[in-house]
């Protein structure tokens, strides 16, 4: 039975690490270091994944079939063959979309409350 983390249950919010890794793979296959750099770029440096967090999350995403490991290389000439590449699955894409909608909804709700216009102090 694949290991399922509570953060990977459909309908439940995803952790930031999971969501940003799925987002990083949304525009193409990537290896670990490229995923890490992409996540850093997406979050303007606020989320810096360490190797343990990155590969621990990748392990759980693989077990939940949200991503798969691929043998194809984008450019075999330039690539280091020791690297592993990962690809988003249809299920992973659906979960990322759900999370995107949840976050959009949350941002919309925050805007309707005019949070930024009514600071406490």
């Amino acid at each position: 039975m694949p290991h399922t983390s509570s953060s990977l249950v459909p309908g439940q919010p995803l952790t930031p690490a999971v969501f940003h890794i799925l987002l990083a793979l949304a525009d193409g296959d990537k290896h670990g270091y490229a995923i890490m750099k992409d996540v850093e770029h997406q979050t303007a440096g606020r989320l810096k994944l360490g190797p343990g967090t990155l590969y621990g999350t990748i392990k759980r995403l693989l077990a939940a079939s949200l991503i798969v490991e691929v043998d194809e290389r984008p450019d075999p000439e330039l690539d280091d063959e020791r690297r592993r590449y990962y690809r988003l699955t249809a299920l992973g894409r659906r979960l990322a979309l759900e999370e995107n909608e949840r976050l959009t909804q949350a941002v919309k709700a925050a805007r309707s409350k005019r949070l930024a216009d009514n600071p406490l102090s």
């Binding site: 890490m36 020791r82 690297r83």
Partner: peptide
């Protein structure tokens, strides 16, 4: 320090990534 089964799959990848960092 990581479990053996985990290391067997991710050890070289993690070391590679840390070296890049």
């Amino acid at each position: 320090l990581y479990p053996q089964a985990y290391r067997a799959i991710y050890e070289s990848e993690m070391l590679h990534l840390f070296s890049d960092q």
